[in-house]
């Protein structure tokens, strides 16, 4: 690995100052599971590595009924799926974090890092989209929020400007009768990159029909997608197999996948329909039992 300096500031403004000074010669370190590999393999270079794990709001998470979950950008994956309440409230995120890499990776890798790394196939992003999450970004001009579906701008690229970094992710509070789920298709059982991933969230009305729904898709375009038409098609509908399958068909229409060694374009598009229907089914079951 090439030489770099290491700093570990304990406040958000200090990080912004280092980033403003060094531009893209400064690289953030959260869990390190992507950036250390990228630095070692020469895919990215840094003069200074900025460890953000000394900052409380970046490494902590808290839930309240009013604002939902404030998830620090460097909170490691296991905190979500091991948490008895959060894993129920945010089923999709628990599903995602439990299959990002293996156990060792989950001890370090964070949802915030997964988002910033902006892989089209990132497992947590379709879940964040489904859960209607907002990225909380700090920079030289203070704080701003970006909807998660607008955060990724291309493979490996995100909406962060010079001097900015992701502090936390804000995810709306969950009520009774809401549920969510994530599934991906991979040819192995674990430790693989999604051929397609889908995250779904639903909220049921008192009569059991769907009051709100959001569907996120991964690995079917240059960035993870929000499937708007598919999500809206469910409003006011009963969660029948047929209606959920229709949403899957609509989601297929926005998929523009590539063909590569993991799967052809046609195969991936087919998987979108299957995974959307499956995750919706699980989300509805979780909503009914919540």
């Amino acid at each position: 690995m090439k030489e770099f300096d290491y700093v570990a500031p304990d406040s958000v403004p200090e990080v912004v100052a280092v980033l403003s000074e060094h531009g893209d010669r400064a690289k953030l370190l959260a869990g390190g599971t992507d950036i250390i590999v990228q630095l070692r393999e020469g895919l990215r270079e840094a003069d200074v590595v900025v460890d953000i794990k000394k900052i409380d709001e970046v490494t902590s998470f808290k839930y309240c009924d009013e604002n939902g979950l404030a998830l620090g950008a460097a909170v490691a994956c296991y905190n979500l799926y091991e948490h008895p309440e959060l894993s129920k409230l945010y089923g999709a995120l628990a599903d995602s974090t439990h299959i990002i890499g293996g156990w060792q990776i989950q001890s370090r890798a964070s949802v915030g890092g997964n988002l910033c790394n902006a892989s089209p196939a990132a497992d947590s992003i379709p879940s964040l989209i489904a859960l209607n999450a907002m990225a909380v970004v700090a920079g030289p001009n203070g704080e701003r929020t970006v909807a998660v579906e607008e955060f990724c701008t291309g493979p490996g690229r995100n909406a962060l400007e010079n001097g900015e970094f992701l502090v936390s992710i804000q995810i709306p509070a969950q009520c009774n009768r809401s549920g969510s789920a994530y599934e991906r298709f991979i040819p192995r059982n674990e430790m693989d990159i999604a051929v397609v991933g889908a995250g779904s969230w639903v909220k049921l009305a008192e009569d059991g029909t769907i009051a709100a729904a959001r569907i996120g898709l991964g690995a079917v375009a240059a960035t993870p997608l929000y499937a708007a038409a598919a999500s809206e098609s469910l409003l006011g509908k009963a969660p029948t197999e047929e209606n959920l399958a229709t949403a899957g068909e609509l989601a297929k229409q926005i998929a523009t996948p590539i063909s590569d060694m993991r799967g052809t374009d046609e195969y991936r598009t087919h998987l979108v329909g299957v995974l959307v229907q499956r995750t919706l089914t699980t989300a509805v079951e979780r909503a009914q039992s919540s």
Partner: peptide
């Protein structure tokens, strides 16, 4: 592998298993 795939470098860091090839010594 030196890139987080094989787990041969696994150690416990504050009680959790991690790939030590993906942790900086300074951390």
């Amino acid at each position: 592998c030196n890139n987080g795939n094989c787990g041969a470098c696994t150690v416990l860091l504050n009680g959790r298993p991690v790939d030590s090839c993906l942790v900086l010594g300074v951390e």
